[in-house]
Every structure is written in structure tokens, then in C-alpha cells.
């Protein structure tokens, strides 16, 4: 129970890290092209559509894994401790994270937003991931084990 919760949550963080990396590279390459600079970065970075594909797939995969991880957490909490939700800071942040990536994923899926904006948001989104993953344990007390 706890294993599935932990493993899928951690794997979703990995996917969000990949999305962040691809997003950052997209922003750099896009800037090179917009500014008409064909330097070392231009030649060595992949094309925009490749970076975008990796970025979007990673967001989708991360979101799916996070959904599994959170539902297991909620169900597990009910079974092990008798409550669905205990209002722990980590729970609140994780729910926020889920909502953020859900919006990002849907916006991209419905093509209301593309390219630069999605890339930028996936980079910013990862800051929230880092805070949820590491920040909470140090800055705010939680009963979730810190790593």
C-alpha cells in the first residue's frame, strides 16, 4: 500500500524533472531561433518539436503517476488511520501540485496553450515539486517521512 504510494509519487517527480529539463531546453532553443542566433547552443540542442514532445509526454506521464500516488495515499490513509484527509501540509501541497499539473495538462491537451508557455510553466511547476518534496519536511512540520 505505502510502497505503491511512495513509488508512484517519486516516479511522478522524476517525470516532472524530465518535463522541466525539456522545457528549459525548449526555452533556450526557442530564444536562439527567435533571436536568429546560430551558435553552439543552436547546433547542439534538439529541435523545438522534439523538445516539446518530450516535455508534453513527461507532463502527462507525471500527472498520471501523481494521480495514482495521491489516490493510493488517500485510500491508504483511510484504511490505516481511518481518515481520508488529515490536513497535513504535505497533503495540501500535493493536492495543489495535482491541480496545477492537471490544469497544465488539460490546457496543453485542448491546445489552448502551446510551446513557450507550456515549457515555462513546466519549469515553474517543478519548483513547486521541489518544495513539496523537500521544502515541506524542513520548513513545515509534517508526519510524512523526510528523505
Amino acid at each position: 500500500m505505502v510502497i505503491v504510494h511512495t513509488v508512484s509519487s517519486l516516479l511522478s517527480y522524476v517525470a516532472f524533472l524530465v518535463a522541466c529539463g525539456a522545457g528549459a531546453l525548449f526555452l533556450i532553443q526557442e530564444r536562439q531561433i527567435k533571436r536568429k542566433r546560430m551558435g553552439i547552443l543552436f547546433h547542439h540542442l534538439p529541435s523545438l518539436d522534439q523538445l516539446e514532445r518530450v516535455n508534453v509526454l513527461a507532463i502527462g506521464l507525471g500527472f498520471a503517476l501523481l494521480t495514482v500516488g495521491l489516490s493510493w495515499g488517500v485510500v491508504g490513509s483511510r484504511l490505516l488511520r481511518g481518515v481520508w484527509w488529515s490536513g497535513d501540509p504535505k497533503e495540501i501541497l500535493s493536492a495543489t501540485l495535482w491541480v496545477c499539473y492537471c490544469i497544465l495538462w488539460l490546457a496543453r491537451l485542448r491546445a489552448t496553450m502551446r510551446g513557450r508557455r507550456v515549457a515555462l510553466l513546466s519549469v515553474l511547476g517543478f519548483a513547486l515539486v521541489l518544495f513539496t518534496f523537500l521544502g515541506v519536511s524542513w520548513l513545515v512540520p509534517t508526519w510524512h517521512p523526510s528523505l
Binding site: 531561433i33 529541435s47 523545438l48 518539436d49
Partner: peptide, 12 residues
């Protein structure tokens, strides 16, 4: 060929 190079970094 410069235009092609640029386009290839957008569409592969």
C-alpha cells in the same frame, strides 16, 4: 540552406 537549417530546428 540557412532557411532550411532554421526550419529543421523547429520541425525536425
Amino acid at each position: 540552406s540557412v532557411a532550411v537549417e532554421l526550419a529543421q530546428k523547429i520541425f525536425s
